[in-house]
Amino acid sequence: MSSNSGSWSESVNLRRVSVYGVLVVMVAFYLAPLETGLMTAFKTQNAFFSTTPFAPPPADGVTVQPWAAALDRLGPGVVNSLLFAVPATMLSALFGSMAAYGMTNLNWKYQVGVLSLFVAGVFIPYQSVLVPLTRFWSMVDVASLLAFIPPLADRAGLIELGVTHAAYGIPICTVLFRGYYLSLDDEMLEAARLDGASPARIYRKIVLPLSKPMFAVTLIYQFTNIWNDLLFALVLVSDPSNAPVTIALNTLKGSMVQQYNVQMAGAFIAALPTLVIYVLFGEQFAKGVAGET
């Protein structure tokens, strides 16, 4: 036995070393595209043609000019994206919370049926609604409806995009909140009910305050989703001055085909808000991702 334990601990050590080895190699795999992108964004045209992609820029090849060029192109897009993504995120989170409460903590017949439609809504491909969506928004002409408030009428494309994203975000937000509300203490809600509190009051006074951590998860996850989307913007926004950052970045890629340094700087500028949120709130983001199932 004792003679055995030496080789046993040796094999355990070997195993642990190889586990860490693979983990570190995978770190390199997942970070390589970002690292090469970041290095390239700081290189001059000559430098990135002559150096290895992941190597830091050589002393005579460092420049921040790509960042200035990309920011110049993407700045308005960043503002546009914030203008519709923030309200759309808040709307779908609020609606999701309400829907989850109405279908989880209140019980009524057939709620499983309605709930299934919400859950299935998470998975419906955007493609299957694109054509009707453009028809709908050309019939409901937001620009002329809001013509009496010119600043809003000019932003009609963003309003349409925001409402659309808010509606399509409701199913996933509902699923996330439902998981959380299922775990709420039933006895506490029941006690409030016996005290004569109405469902609306229970929601406002008990459920909503308890929902803060779930709101963090939903807002973070949903903001990332909406900020990152290209397809809806592609078919709904016709005025280039309303283009969100994903459209602006795609245009930049098309017009600066050989300028990889500017493309990379642009990619980082477009990704910055979601990257910062991810680094600060990775735990909440992971919960949102896991909640999708």
């Binding site: 609606f95 829907a99 409460y101 279908m103 009524w108 609604v129 709908f136 509606a167 109405s198 609306a200």
Partner: peptide, 26 residues
């Protein structure tokens, strides 16, 4: 059911219109 309606009704209306209505229209 009635008391729960104000909570899930509006979101269900939006999902019904934008998701399922649009799928049918498509």
């Amino acid at each position: 059911f009635v008391q729960s309606l104000p909570f899930w009704g509006p979101p269900a209306l939006l999902v019904g219109l934008f998701v399922y209505g649009a799928v049918a229209w498509n």
